[in-house]
């Protein structure tokens, strides 16, 4: 009896170890593969040139258009999402309190978080059709902003939640209004958390392909106007991989590596920042 009990525990501990190895191993494998296949075809030209004639047949050129395009798309979308989500987060923590409304808003954000990006793409494209907008930087920004909105709101919500309520109570006790408390106490206390949320959302936006597929289009030129199509890194990866030429596929790996490095750097910086700045915050 006792033997059996112990044996079962050992068996499951073994399985747990195995699972952990599979999880970490597969994630490492992905990063390793990207490095191994991407590094050889990565060159300075790839990072500093736009595609020239015959690029997709394996001729000269680079993916600067996609890198700049992605930065513009994600940057614009993050800015737009930030403008929308900051008031929502402030509402949740100063005006709504613990009311039913706050619960509903949080639930709505959780729901938005789960909507697939292709659906955001389809939605934004439909809206664009109605207002007469073609595939463009602006369209891509709108789609991505919808996608990033719940990410930023949740991040901010969590950052605000870490602030002890005694702090805002102290502010109220001095006669400050809720708005003043929000702007002078909450925002200042939660700067690190807000920055983390913004960085994470930016990373999510820069890596998303399905929502910009038909809203932002693709072009070989650098982005020059809000109303013109714009290239993006994920789509650069996708399209280059889809060509039948090995040389171009190699470049897809390199573009993927660039994208991975950008996203992981953002993510690591965001986490480091949140831990770092948390030390200076009153708890």
């Amino acid at each position: 009896m006792k033997r059996l009990r112990r044996l079962e525990e050992y068996l499951f501990r073994f399985l747990m170890g195995l699972s952990l190895v599979i999880v970490l191993g597969s994630l490492m494998l992905i990063l390793g593969t990207m490095l191994w296949r991407g590094l050889p075809s990565l060159s300075l030209a790839m990072l500093t040139q736009v595609p020239k004639g015959g690029y997709y047949l394996g001729e000269e050129g680079g993916i600067l258009n996609a890198i700049v395009g992605s930065l513009c798309l994600a940057g614009g979308a993050t800015l737009l999402a930030l403008l929308l989500s900051l008031p929502v987060a402030i509402y949740l923590h100063t005006y709504a309190g613990c009311s039913r409304a706050a619960h509903l808003v949080r639930l709505a954000m959780d729901v938005l978080w789960g909507i697939p990006s292709i659906v955001y793409g389809a939605f934004a494209f439909t809206i664009m059709l109605w207002i007469g907008l073609r595939a463009s930087l602006l369209g891509g920004i709108i789609a991505l902003a919808c996608l990033e909105l719940p990410i930023i709101v949740r991040g901010m919500d969590e950052a605000f939640r870490l602030i002890p309520s005694a702090l805002s109570e102290a502010s109220y006790a001095l006669g400050a209004t809720r708005f003043e408390t929000a702007t002078r106490i909450l925002l200042r206390q939660a700067t690190a958390g807000l920055l983390t949320a913004v960085l994470l959302a930016f990373g999510r936006g820069i890596g998303d392909a399905a929502s910009v597929l038909f809203t932002a289009g693709y072009t070989d030129r650098l982005p020059d106007s809000l109303l013109r199509p714009v290239a993006s890194l994920p789509l650069a990866v996708f399209f280059q991989l889809g060509t039948p030429f090995p040389a171009v596929q190699q470049r897809a790996y390199a573009a993927g590596l660039v994208l991975t490095v950008i996203v992981l750097t953002l993510s690591v910086v965001a986490r480091w920042l949140s831990r770092r700045l948390m030390h200076h915050v009153v708890r």
Binding site: L27, I30, M34, L200, G203, R204, I206, G207, D208, A209, A210, P234, V237, F238, L241, A252, Y253, G256, L259, T260, V263, L264, L266, S267
Partner: peptide, 9 residues
């Protein structure tokens, strides 16, 4: 946070 395109590749 790894983008889905990367998983695809």
């Amino acid at each position: 946070g790894i983008p889905s395109v990367i998983f695809g590749i």
